[in-house]
Design a protein around this nucleic acid. Sequence first.
DNA 1: CATGGATTTTGACATATATCAAACCGGTTA
DNA 2: TAACCGGTTTGATATATGTCAAAATCCATG
Lengths: 245, 245
Amino acid sequence: MVSNMQRSVSNFRLKAACSNCNLRELCLPIGLSIDEMQQMDDLSRLKRGYARGDYLYRSGDKFQSLYAIHSGSFKTQALHEDGREQVTGFQMHGEIIGLDAICTDHHTCEAVALENSEVCELPFNKLETLSRKFPSLQRHLHKIMSREIVRDQGIMLLLGSMRAEERLAVFLLSLSQRFAARGLSPTQFQLRMSRQEIGSYLGLKLETVSRSFSNFQDNGLINVKARSVELLDLPSLHSLVGKQL
Amino acid sequence: MVSNMQRSVSNFRLKAACSNCNLRELCLPIGLSIDEMQQMDDLSRLKRGYARGDYLYRSGDKFQSLYAIHSGSFKTQALHEDGREQVTGFQMHGEIIGLDAICTDHHTCEAVALENSEVCELPFNKLETLSRKFPSLQRHLHKIMSREIVRDQGIMLLLGSMRAEERLAVFLLSLSQRFAARGLSPTQFQLRMSRQEIGSYLGLKLETVSRSFSNFQDNGLINVKARSVELLDLPSLHSLVGKQL
DNA sequence: CATGGATTTTGACATATATCAAACCGGTTA
DNA sequence: TAACCGGTTTGATATATGTCAAAATCCATG
C-alpha cells in the first residue's frame, strides 16, 4: 500500500504531469511515483482539436485508442442496420470514450463533436502495457469500464420504465451534477445538443422533449429558452422522478 | 506472438484445465503455457450451486468476485430508489456476471437464479493479478467488459427506438443465437423466464409481451405454448426488425 | 440590418401500448 | 379427482406519446 503522504505527493505531481492533457478520469485517483508519472506522461502526448460536427471516429473504424475529452463535448451514437441511429451518450471534459471498440477491435458507434473540442488520444496498447505495471492504473481502468456499464444500465432503466417528463428530469439532473463536478453552475447552463438529439438519447421524439420542457417551465421548475436552461427547483425535479403513473 | 502450433496445444490443455469449471467466456480464446494454465486453474476452484430463486448477489453486497455461469441461467435486475425494478439481462452458461460492481466495490444490481444453476466464483483480485502477468488474459478481460458495454448499448437502441413486436423478435433471435452457440437447437427451446420478466427486460407490460407472442403465432412465425417456443420462420423474424412505423 | 435556413414551439389528431378485468390453463396439493 | 394458485391469454377501454403541420424563434451570413 502507498502511504497517505506518498499519495498526496504523487497526486500533486500527477496534476503537473497531466497538465498538458487534463485526464481527470484517468489521473485523479491514482497514486503513482515520479518515475511512474513520467511513463504516464508519455502515454498521451497527442492532443487534437475537433470542430463542431467533426467525427472523432466512425462506426467500423479500426480501434487504436481511447480518447479523453480535454475540452468541449461529444455525442456518441449507435447505428442500426436499418438506418436508425440513436444517441447513446453525451460526453464532456474529463470523460473517456471509445470503450465499446475493445471487444471487436472496431468501433461500434460513432463520436461527433458537439462544439469545438480537444481530446487526448490514449493508445490502448500503451494503456494495457502500463496497467500491467501499475496495479492502481489497472484497477482504475477497470473502474472506468465498469462505470460505463453501470451508466448504461441506468439508461436502460430510464428507457424501459420512465415516462417522458421523468426521463427529461433525470437528464437535466444528470447534466446539473456533471457541471457541478466540474466547478460550473449546477443550475444554469447551455445545452450543447438539439431537442432532436436529446430525444434520441431519451427515446422520445423532439416534439415530446419540447413539450416536456415547456411543461417544466409552466410549473416553475425551470427556465428554458432554446438551449439555455436554468434549473429553478431542483428538489421538485428530483421528486418528479419515480412518480409512476 | 504465439505460433499457431503453440496456440492449439495450449487451447487443448486449457480445456482440460477448465474442465472443472467450464469457463467458455474466460478461457476459449486464450493461448497460455502449461504453467500459466496451472495458475489459471487455481483461479476458480469454487463451484457453487444455486436453486431457482436464489440470489447470487444482492444490490449493495460488497464486491469480491465475478461469476462465470457453469450451468443453468440467471437474471440480473437493477433496483430504482422508488422501488421500481428492471431486468437488465438474462445470462446463461459460459457468461460472466458481476462486472457492474467493480466501479463502486459494491454490487449495483442483483442476480437471481432462474433455475437450478452452478457458477464458478472468480475472485477479482486474483483475476487482476493474473491478468497483469498474462497479457492475453488481460486483453480478454477487457474484451468481456467491452462486450458488456456493447450489449447494453444494443438494448438501449431496442428500448429507445423499437416497437413491441420488434423488441420481442430481437429477444427471440438473440436467444436463438445464444442457444445455437452452445450447441442447442436455435429453433426450439424453453424459456426460463416469465412474461413479466421478459416484459421488464424489454420495457413492456406482460400483456403486451403475451399479445406479441400470440400475433407471431397467428402469423406463422412461431409456435408458442406457455414457456416452450419454436421459431418457425427465422427470416421473417429478422425482417420484422427495422420496419419502423 | 435583412434574409433564409434550421431549430423550436405549439396545435390537432392518430395510434401503440398500458390499464383493468375476466377467463383460461397447467401443475401441485389436499 | 377436486380445488387451488401462479402464470398466461384475451378483451374493452384509457392514455401517453407519436405524427403531421404550421407558426414562431434563433442564428449565421451576406
